[in-house]
Computed example of a mutant assay.
Amino acid sequence: MKLKDKVALITGGSSGIGRGICHAFAKEGAAVVFVGLSEQKGKRTEEELLKLGCNALFIQADLADRSKLPSIVEMVIERFGKLDVLVNNAQSSINVTFEETTEEVMDLALNTGFWSTFILMNSALPYLKLTKGKVINFVSGAGMIGLSKQASYAAAKEAIRGISRVAATEWGRYGINVNLISPIANSPGVERLQVEHPNAYNKMVSLIPLGRLGDCEEDIGRAAVFLASSDADYITGQTIMVDGGTVMVR
């Protein structure tokens, strides 16, 4: 029960990696508040967590609506009285070439990924100071190695990496840890890739030294549990590559 009595806020928790994190946190004793766009998927995940005995709350929200983001944190405080862990996992983007990347395409990635992360971090800061809390932001190897057709996605993820390192430097004096996870997992998006573009999928898997995709809960979720727990109290400002060795940071 590494997260017993902890309260966590997780974005994009209705499916995929976010859902895996919710389940992993629940099994370690955390109360879980998660945000998602789809009410149907969110309610389904909420029911799963409640069956595990987790004190769970689903918040339906569009993270691209910046004006509503501070109220999400306030809902957590109203329900639980504190916030120990903030996980910024949600991200939407459209994969097109650099030439085809319009301002609208870039705005989608920045609004759902970068801006939501930035605003939620600032909104959560007063409460994280009180708990000496943890922030876990999600990034991607796409920005580190420059994957084709990932301009907006890479831009959002590298912007998140930048502000996370600054926050780690500035917030260390409050006892707050800020770290990043860069995953590869069997998320719904990857499953669609397997069906729609099997050659690209097979190539991606072939480049993973461990020879398999990560599991959303057992691999990515467990890594998030580690960073959220006291086991990671002396780790901050780091990008943890949970990708089977695909990108080896030097």
Score class of each variant (00 low, 15 high):
I163A: 09
R222Q: 15
R161Q: 10
V178P: 02
R19K: 15
G141I: 07
S148Y: 02
Q238L: 10
K27Q: 14
G12L: 00
G16T: 07
S229N: 06
A156V: 09
Y234G: 01
D107S: 13
N177L: 01
E74W: 01
L50Q: 11
F138D: 03
I119L: 14
I181K: 01
A156T: 15
E48A: 12
V195M: 11
A156S: 15
Q91I: 15
V178N: 04
C54N: 03
V225F: 00
G172W: 04
N177T: 09
V105L: 05
D233K: 07
M204C: 04
Q60T: 09
I10E: 08
A30N: 06
S164H: 05
I176Y: 03
D62E: 12
N137I: 11
D233S: 12
V205T: 03
G244K: 06
T102C: 11
L147R: 07
T97P: 02
R250S: 14
L207T: 15
K203A: 12
I208P: 00
C22I: 05
K134R: 10
V87T: 09
N55R: 13
G221W: 00
S187P: 03
K41D: 10
A151L: 15
Y174F: 15
N202Q: 14
R250N: 13
N111T: 08
S38Q: 06
N111H: 08
G16Y: 08
G53P: 04
E170N: 10
S38I: 01
S152M: 04
S140N: 10
L63I: 01
E218G: 05
Y127H: 15
V249N: 06
D233C: 00
E158S: 14
L86A: 04
A26I: 11
K2Q: 14
K27G: 02
Y234E: 05
